[in-house]
Design a protein around this nucleic acid. Sequence first.
DNA 1: TCTTGTGAAGTGTTTCACAGCT
DNA 2: AGCTGTGAAACACTTCACAAGA
Lengths: 228, 228
Amino acid sequence: MKPDSVSVSPAAAARLPLYIRSLKELAHSGVEQVCSRDLAEATGLEAHQIRKDLSRIGNLGKRGVGYQVDGLIDEISTYLRLSRTWRVALIGYGRLGAALAAHLLVSGENFRLAAVFDCSARKIGARVGDLEVMSWKRIPQVFRECAIEMAIITTPPLAAQGVAELAVEGGVRLILNFAPISLNVPTTAVVRNVDLATEMLALSLQLPSKKRLRGPRIARPTASWASA
Amino acid sequence: MKPDSVSVSPAAAARLPLYIRSLKELAHSGVEQVCSRDLAEATGLEAHQIRKDLSRIGNLGKRGVGYQVDGLIDEISTYLRLSRTWRVALIGYGRLGAALAAHLLVSGENFRLAAVFDCSARKIGARVGDLEVMSWKRIPQVFRECAIEMAIITTPPLAAQGVAELAVEGGVRLILNFAPISLNVPTTAVVRNVDLATEMLALSLQLPSKKRLRGPRIARPTASWASA
DNA sequence: TCTTGTGAAGTGTTTCACAGCT
DNA sequence: AGCTGTGAAACACTTCACAAGA
């Protein structure tokens, strides 16, 4: 058994959410116990890797038997500090923003949508679940009042930098940015970019056969990549 | 100068789209020449890494001077085989699908939306740009006829596996999956998953200060991560 | 015998330091 | 002097092989 402070690598940490998702799927269809090979099947990763990742969190399985699904979900969730709920704000209530808001309102549990902002007078005041779209001018104030921990930016690219600065001013330290632009924020904040065009370009690079880009291994095995 | 076949690593390849995006931004604001430090600033990566990545493609810069912005864009685009346009189909015309379709219709250039599918009779026949939403039953046939190269899946999770199989049957080898489920497809196809919940979980792990997950390095420097 | 957990080996990636042009 | 390009070192991650436990 390792001390809890010796933690998993960043690469492994990025896979843990995927394990939780697959475990919940399995639990939902009545599976109570899994072995590393079952999980490999469900996630598209290697059994090797899953065992190594999980073993870093603690001795979660029984040798010769496998892992208890419920127990494993709990252990990983605890490790990821998912017992709590994160307060999330959405900035930009266009088509994409509305789609994400709809997802957030139903997915519940780990993330709660706590505020929605837009700059268009036409949208301000619109209802989103039991929230109301507010003016972007109120971002710093509302972020502080509601103790928003994560901002999701879905504005047009030119507006993104400005609202990101307001969000940081409001004390936010986690930003999920869907605008196709590199945000410049202080080191107190972490930005994760999700850009459709970049994803598509990266994907098109991976076109298999006709061997491109050195050798048969075509993709770095990451949580969001599956090569089979 | 290296032979063209000795290619960049997968990790570097994943960063190239980001370089193109930043270079286009710079070109748009009138910048004609950049040095590796400028690009580092624009992308949030390290100058070291940018020089190394670019040098693998060829001798693109002038020592003591830097890189020509236009020339660099061309070189990277050529390297990534971006002279051509990919034919893309969207499967699932809900809120998210509609938002993505709108982006695709304007972004043009490297990707062209060539077909849209849904399973709901209410949506079939709706116009999307100059396309018409078709029944999912026609996926294999239309994929072959239009020689679709990339499928974007935005269906509910339970439908995703089925439409992915139809898409593969239609000959597609690149799948961008927004449904929160692990798709099971033959090795002839590559799947890239983009899942809001997973992205948010991975992001929340990176909450800075209060040092979590070993040491000061909080994120694997990937194209889509910026820690400052 | 089955499966986990883990040191060790192998592989890939980043960082460094500096040689080589301009 | 300034900046690129690159071998070498440092680091991180994955894969392997097998010991240990049920």
